[in-house]
């Protein structure tokens, strides 16, 4: 059984992975980031739609993996509404 952390971008993935390794935490996996590099190239970045798709994809993978808990890290970017996106996604 493991715990999964979903992050926003590839950069976040590198940072959190380094942090987890530094803190010597063994039972956390870092999942694929919500956004690909292309999302940032076209300046869209994280959108509610992207988040919904990522969570739907996560739901699809859930039965195949023995995961106890999931965490999602989102950049606030000064946007208060972002913190409500997980609830809004309906997943």
């Amino acid at each position: 059984m493991s715990n999964l952390l979903i992050v926003e971008s590839k950069n976040d993935e590198f940072f959190i992975k380094a942090l987890v390794d530094h803190l010597n935490i063994t039972n956390i996996d870092i999942g694929k980031p919500i956004c690909s590099i292309q999302d940032y190239k076209c300046l869209e970045g994280l959108s509610l739609n992207n988040l919904i798709l990522r969570l739907e994809a996560f739901k699809n993978s859930l039965p195949k993996n023995d995961i106890e808990a999931v965490g999602i890290i989102l950049d606030n970017d000064g946007q208060k509404k972002k913190s409500n996106w997980v609830n809004k996604s309906g997943c």
Partner: peptide, 25 residues
């Protein structure tokens, strides 16, 4: 399934399938 070792079916609608393909999931 990981927990029950039972054969399961997971449906993907086309939008989610496209996303998972793009993310190489």
């Amino acid at each position: 399934s990981a927990k029950k070792n039972k054969t399961i079916a997971i449906k993907r609608d086309i939008e989610v399938l496209k996303y998972e393909l793009s993310q190489e999931m």
